[in-house]
Simulated assay, not measured.
Amino acid sequence: MNASYRFDGNDELCLRFGPDDAPRLLILPPLFDEANRVRHLMVEFGRLLGDLGIASLLPDLPGCNESLVPLDTASISLWQAALITCAEQLGPVTHVASLRGGALLDGALGDLRRWRLAPVKGGQLLRTMLRTRIASDREAGITSSSEALMETARASGIELAGNSLSPCMIRELDSAAPSQSSAIRLVRFADDPLDADGRITGAPLWLRAEPAHDPAMAAAIAQDIAAWMRG
């Protein structure tokens, strides 16, 4: 079901799943091009959670998906403010689930319980996009480097992986890290050697060259989140 929240003079789309009268889980997608590759996965596990009687919200961030806001006006702090507004208008929100870079935003929602899948620091996302830009420049016969690109980005913004990022976004992203809390369930993939509270079988869809879907992964995520919320 489609809903919307009003933020900064604009109506932003929000998909709503599950019972209308239940407390809600707020789903935070990965950032930038990674979000496009896992959109189907997020919609599917939102629907599966609804089948399990759990309500959830999947909002568009300003500048993303159906938003009419230019991406080059967005920043980490702006997205956090938008999520606070979304939770206030479409809540009550009692839990948050974030994937990858979405974990950079969930700290804005206070002491809500959080579920995270493979969280990442903002600087890591930035370096990945810079490497993609350097490879693209090389194919076009242009010599570039991370240092030179970052100097330009901090001064006047830059386009990375098809995303127009402002100097403010670059600065905030470069220093952003998932916030700490005792109320976090950390989930990773089965072959990830880092510590985790739970494991999901499968390969990260955000590493695919094109958007893809994994029904088994969506079901596993929904089951894990449902058990966590009910526990």
Rank of each mutant, 00 (worst) to 15 (best):
L90H: 08
D106C: 12
H95G: 00
R138M: 12
A118S: 12
W115H: 12
A103C: 14
R133T: 07
D111H: 11
R138S: 11
T132A: 15
G101C: 11
L99D: 12
L104Q: 05
R133N: 04
S136V: 08
L125N: 04
T128Q: 15
L125A: 03
A140L: 06
T143A: 12
A108N: 02
T132M: 14
I134F: 02
G91T: 06
V96P: 09
R127Q: 10
I142T: 05
A140N: 05
L126N: 00
L125H: 04
A108L: 03
R114N: 08
G110K: 12
M129Y: 05
S136H: 10
T128S: 15
G122E: 05
A87P: 01
L125Q: 10
D106M: 11
D106F: 11
A87M: 02
T94K: 03
D106T: 14
T143V: 14
L117W: 15
L117T: 05
Q124M: 15
A140V: 03
A87E: 03
R116H: 05
S136G: 09
A87T: 00
L109Y: 06
R116C: 02
P92E: 09
C86M: 07
L130V: 01
V93Y: 04
L130P: 01
P92K: 07
I134M: 13
L109E: 05
R100M: 12
K121Q: 07
L130E: 00
T94L: 05
T143W: 06
L126D: 01
V120C: 12
Q124R: 13
W115P: 04
Q124P: 01
L125I: 14
V120L: 13
W115T: 10
R133G: 01
G107V: 03
G107T: 05
L104I: 04
T128L: 15
L99G: 08
D137K: 06
A108D: 04
R138A: 13
A135K: 12
R100I: 12
L104F: 02
G110Y: 13
A103Y: 08
E88I: 02
L109Q: 07
T94S: 14
L109I: 13
R133Y: 02
L112K: 11
R127H: 10
G107H: 06
